[in-house]
Design a protein around this nucleic acid. Structure first.
Length: 121
DNA sequence: ACAGTGACCTACT
DNA sequence: GAGTAGGCCACTG
């Protein structure tokens, strides 16, 4: 575990996928959210959404702040809430940023959705 | 070495 | 529309 993470942290023989993922996630403004798929597309691996999820799993070990709570699945569902220190932390973080969450789902998801392609061009 | 498992998504029945 | 299959690739037993 530590070895692999160290590899990514040191960025030695890494193709940069994880780092690009973290970079994009860090660029998500407060009060907006994006999806695993959107990040995967934007980082050049359209079908590697699961890897984005895995990257989020290790995001808390990254240097700096990685707002993993602003990344949800395509339906606006908070599928990753159980991987936070507290299961309800994800929802509370989102609500503290002005995002309404109901039944583990983001209300008005299409309105707060942040598309890297539209915002980072 | 190998098979199973995932914070997922798209595309095809 | 629901259900299935395939893809991505790191990690685990």
């Amino acid at each position: 575990m530590k070895k692999q993470l160290k590899k990514q942290l040191t960025n030695s023989d890494n193709d940069g996928f994880f780092d690009r993922v973290y970079d994009v996630v860090r660029l998500i403004p407060a009060g907006r959210v994006t999806t695993y798929g959107a990040i995967a597309r934007f980082t050049g691996a359209p079908k590697a959404a699961r890897m984005v999820g895995w990257a989020m799993n290790a995001s808390h070990l990254q240097p700096g702040f990685v707002p993993a709570h602003r990344v949800v699945n395509r339906n606006g569902l908070l599928t990753g809430k159980h991987h936070f220190r507290h299961p309800d932390m994800m929802q509370e973080l989102l609500e503290s940023e002005g995002i309404a969450v109901e039944n583990d789902r983001i209300v008005e998801f299409s309105r707060v959705f942040w598309d890297p392609y539209k915002e980072l061009i």
